[in-house]
Simulated assay, not measured.
Amino acid sequence: MGESEGQKPGSRGVSRRALLIGGGVAAAGTAVLARDDLGRLWWRMPGVVKRRKEGEVDAKGAQWTAASDYNWRRADRPDDYGIDRVIIHVVQGGYATALRVFKDPSHGAATHYVVRKDGHVAQMIRELDVAFHAGNRGYNERSVGIEHEGFVDDKSSFTDAMYASSARLTAGICERYDIPVDREHIIGHVEVPGTDHTDPGPHWDWDRYIRLVRAARAAPRKATEKARAQGAG
């Protein structure tokens, strides 16, 4: 689950011209570096830390519990790297195990979220940051990773509560970043190029999951339409 090195295709990372911010171009203002680049990259200069609110979560109802700083990389997504994937993982263990190893600086990997069998969600890394979860640097930079308690060879791991909670979580991510709800953009860890992982495994019900994500994403829209119709009546 560690992050592989190498150039990432199609990403909006720090370009060669942006790196010139440390040299003469910075003194010359925006002659070479565009204003929007400066807005995104000022915090990458030495000694500058982008302001964060401790304990803040991206998903409503999630409980914040921070992963080790060694298991993710600070970023400013989607401004520096576009997000167009959700990657589904299975722990091969329990919820507490996932939290423990993701807090371990020697582990070298963590996901943004962990979903428990009863549907409880922990957020361990902010969505704007790059989690080391896919085993592929480019996919790390473009995705949000969701870990699920359980085992790939145990169908009973995947409870109704887990499916429903995870689907709502993924629907919210898709809504925030305008990600299509389909199997091209919501994938398993096993589908990441270059990985040797098999999760979420043969017992993960993809048809059911995509249906639930679509329903969860459509629910707020339907509620708004219903409220408008009632107001008009």
Rank of each mutant, 00 (worst) to 15 (best):
G6Q: 09
Q7D: 05
V14D: 07
A18V: 02
G24H: 09
G29I: 12
G29M: 13
R40F: 04
R40N: 09
W42K: 06
W42R: 10
W43L: 00
R44G: 02
G47E: 13
G47K: 13
K53D: 09
A62L: 01
N71K: 04
R73Y: 08
R74W: 05
A75N: 12
A75K: 08
D80L: 06
V86S: 04
H89Y: 15
A96F: 08
T97P: 00
R100N: 08
P105K: 06
H112W: 10
Y113P: 07
D118R: 01
H120R: 06
V121S: 02
I125E: 05
E127A: 03
E127P: 01
I146S: 03
I146W: 03
E147V: 02
H148Y: 02
S157W: 03
S157M: 07
T159Y: 03
M162I: 01
A164L: 13
L169K: 03
R176V: 02
I179K: 01
I179E: 01
P180F: 14
D182K: 10
E184L: 11
I186P: 00
V190S: 10
G194A: 09
T195V: 06
D196A: 15
D205N: 15
W206K: 03
R211S: 12
P220H: 10
K226N: 02
A229Q: 15
